[in-house]
Design a binder for these strands. Structure first.
Length: 447
RNA sequence: GUGGGCGUAGCUCAGUUGGUUAGAGUGCCAGAUUGUGAUUCUGGAAGUCGCGGGUUCGAUUCCCGUCGCCCACCCCA
């Protein structure tokens, strides 16, 4: 940089917008490592990957149950359209299913790896943008679907290197709650159930009394008023204390379908060998309105971080969005909290740049030979960096070594004249020569 | 939204009780016999000391404001 007149200060802000991240190569390698585990796990379970636009019609996400996710919608109007960045993937998946519902063969197993947006204040493990791995099963009403998803979640946690016991998945059933209120306050107003769950989800944060107050309110600022009687509210809160199915039975209706379903689920989880990692906890209801049945959330056992992943059954979402009824269950697993946990546990692996070979030509006269060598190696499936411009061999070797490459292919005037390329193995420091003719023969096989 | 901490080189930070030319480590660039990696050695580039205003002969330092980042609280996927 020259001295002289001061540079004009750039008027662009070089920082990424608040709550968003840049992924430089080091960050990107970690992200890819994490995503590869998600993707591999999903594949192991026979799921197919799908995607949808990051921008959707805002109304796809707007629900009236007072959910935070709706309050924090990243939305805007442009050319008379009200659009929103997706805060979660489930509504888009539902939209895709409904749009082709007639031709779908259920059950459907889909997964996604997507960036989701929420306009919110930032804290550790929470930003305005995050990536989420979603796994969903559509068209299977039985808890076999839940069991399969929970097993997939545990499989991914194992693959990440988290020791068994580091993470637990708490599990409950909204249906259990719904059953107990069905003949009471919900008899006239079944739609009050969703806001009721949204309110109950806050119990750890705002306390039992505040939740009771909200449950008994008859008018509400945002969303629908629930209007339980004090007795009903008390009953609900009592139920939330259950930490085993036997506890829950004391509150459940006799012949409770929800309870039978849970017992069946735990039998399945036992067969998967993960039942002991998934304690029943009646206080888990999740903050999203659309869940109807089993709900669950994964958290670090030490309890220092917020929930790592969560999900549940949402059997009525399709109808809500205008489709025919289809049962569905799924979970979301974000990159933020798990990233913090892997950091705390020192579980991020050392990741180097994926590079096998470097091809180097001393001068312009050797460039075309270098290109032929690179072509051949690439066609063999190797990851090859072809040196561009002019650079010193010393620097090339140093960089190749740091990047973890295996070989450096060197072509100078001498090699070119003799029709060979010098190959240096960086680990053994040994060099040998390969014939350029062989290279040419290989190249002709290329289209 | 409230309170606290912090903004100095690409990165991690030191420092200036207000005073010439602002430092270290690391990284980067160049060199240590023409075409060979580590370490080492030598040299070099690089900072409007976040931004704006005030006090002062003089501000990176003190004061005010502002923006940004971090932590806690609040709120909650």
């Amino acid at each position: 940089m020259s001295k002289g007149p001061k540079k004009k200060k750039a008027d662009t802000d070089l920082q990424a917008p608040r709550g968003t991240r840049d992924f430089y190569p080091d960050d990107m390698r970690r992200r890819s490592w994490l995503f590869d585990i998600f993707r591999r796990t999903a594949m192991q379970f026979g799921f197919e990957e799908v995607d949808a636009p990051m921008v959707e019609h805002a109304e796809l996400f707007i629900r009236k149950a007072g959910e935070e996710i709706v309050d924090q919608l990243y939305h805007f109007e442009i050319h008379d359209r009200h659009l929103a960045l997706r805060p979660e993937m489930t509504p888009s998946i539902a939209r895709m299913i409904i749009a082709h519902q007639g031709g779908m063969r259920f059950p459907i197993r889909w997964f996604t790896l997507t960036q989701n947006w929420r306009y919110e204040r930032m804290t550790r493990g929470r930003r305005r943008e995050h990536y989420q791995w979603n796994m969903d099963i559509w068209g299977e009403p039985g808890v076999e679907a839940e069991a399969e998803l929970l097993s997939a979640m545990m499989t991914a946690l194992d693959a990440l290197g988290l020791a068994r016991g580091k993470v637990h998945i708490r599990l409950n059933s909204r249906r259990l709650l719904e059953e107990s209120l069905r003949d009471g306050v919900l008899a006239d107003r079944p739609q009050a159930f969703e806001p009721l769950c949204v309110v109950i989800d806050k119990i750890d944060k705002i306390g039992a009394q505040a939740v009771t107050d909200l449950l008994c309110e008859t008018t509400s600022e945002k969303g629908e008023a629930i209007g339980l009687s004090p007795g009903e509210a008390e009953h609900v809160l009592e139920m939330l204390g259950a930490r085993s199915l036997d506890d829950a039975q004391k509150f459940a209706a006799s012949e409770s379908a929800a309870l039978n379903e849970l017992r069946q689920l735990y039998d399945l989880l036992d067969a998967y060998g993960i039942a002991d990692q998934i304690p029943f906890d009646a206080s888990v209801v999740r903050g999203l309105a659309y869940y109807t049945g089993v709900v669950f959330e994964a958290f670090d056992t030490a309890g220092t971080l917020r929930a790592i992943a969560g999900g549940g059954r949402y059997d009525r979402l399709a109808e809500t969005l205008g489709g025919k009824p289809v049962s569905a269950v799924g979970f979301g697993f974000g990159d933020a909290v798990i990233g913090e946990l892997l950091e705390d546990e020192g579980l991020w692996p050392a990741l180097t740049r994926p590079l096998d070979d470097v091809v180097y030509a001393f001068g312009p006269d050797e460039k075309s030979a270098a290109i032929r060598v690179a072509n051949r190696l690439r066609s063999e499936g190797r990851k090859v960096e072809l040196c561009l411009g002019v650079a010193k061999l010393k620097r090339i070797l140093g960089d190749a070594d740091k990047a973890g490459a295996q070989n450096v292919y060197i072509i100078g005037e001498d090699e070119r004249a003799r029709g060979v390329v010098k190959v240096k193995d960086l680990a053994t420091q040994q060099e040998h020569e390969e014939n350029l003719d062989a290279v040419r023969a290989a190249e002709t096989r290329q289209p």
